[in-house]
Design a protein around this nucleic acid. Structure first.
Lengths: 138, 138
DNA sequence: GCAACTATATGCAAATAGCATATATAAGGG
DNA sequence: CCCTTATATATGCTATTTGCATATAGTTGC
């Protein structure tokens, strides 16, 4: 996969090992996960994109997200009213956008949480059946 | 979302409530899940596409997949050597392709299983932190 | 001045999956 | 016999998310 029509910039794999077996079948690589995770991080503490990306990267569980994804997700959230932002020009470094979660955003996050719970239950169901298959095989 | 440039055939939402909060933010709707689930079903019993689609639909957990997705996934699996297929013209009804999982396919499934385990752990981690956020908020 | 770090943004392309649609066989009813 | 419905598979188009390459700009240290 991924080596289609002689494009000059080669590999476009998923390097995170989070979406599918290594080097194969990427796609919705992080399965939308950065969305709820960003909402969680913003619930815990308001922050700007760069910091959120760092917190996400240090999240463990093989999550390595492109900064682009973080910034774009935050802008989309703002369009949808889930966060607000304002420029910070104060102290050191270049200007940065501080993001804060809104009440709507918290509601959206709670909706996400119930989805995540369902997904986890489904994963457990699949994993149990997988164990059965491999047990019988032995 | 989804209502871009006046296309005649409207909604392209996710109707399964499985990928994200209702009616919003679709994308990798089933988060690649049909892949490992198909492999699991084929580990349990060889079958043709139509039957696999039915088994998938009866899987519970809000999973409703388009038949197209099933057929295309199976063809891809065959290209990758994870399944083999041969036409069955025998008994009643139109000809159908019987799919059987290969040794390679089983290996691929096992790789998937370890990914699913990681994901479930991550989900639990997120859910725990989400509980903390909402506890403090109360 | 220049490299490195902080910080954000845009364009392009790849991958999965849904909808519309086309196909063909077979069974049952009128 | 024709028509509808169920079985069974396949292709084209498009939407959505996301990664990579790249551009930009301020700030700090050498």
């Amino acid at each position: 996969m991924c080596m289609q029509k002689g494009h000059h910039h080669g590999h476009r794999h998923n390097m995170c090992g989070c979406s599918g077996p290594p080097g194969e079948v990427a796609g919705g690589r992080h399965e939308n996960l950065i969305q709820p995770v960003l909402l969680l991080l913003l619930c815990e503490k308001s922050a700007h994109g760069y910091e959120l990306h760092e917190r996400l990267t240090g999240f463990g569980f093989d999550i390595t997200v492109d900064p682009t994804t973080v910034y774009r997700c935050l802008r989309r959230f703002e369009e949808q009213g889930f966060v607000t932002s304002h420029w910070e020009t104060q102290d050191a470094g270049p200007a940065r956008r501080l993001y804060e979660i809104t009440l709507e955003g918290k509601g959206f996050f709670q909706a996400w949480v119930s989805i995540l719970r369902k997904r986890r239950d489904l994963y457990n169901f699949i994993l149990t059946r997988a164990d059965d298959v491999f047990d019988v095989g032995r």
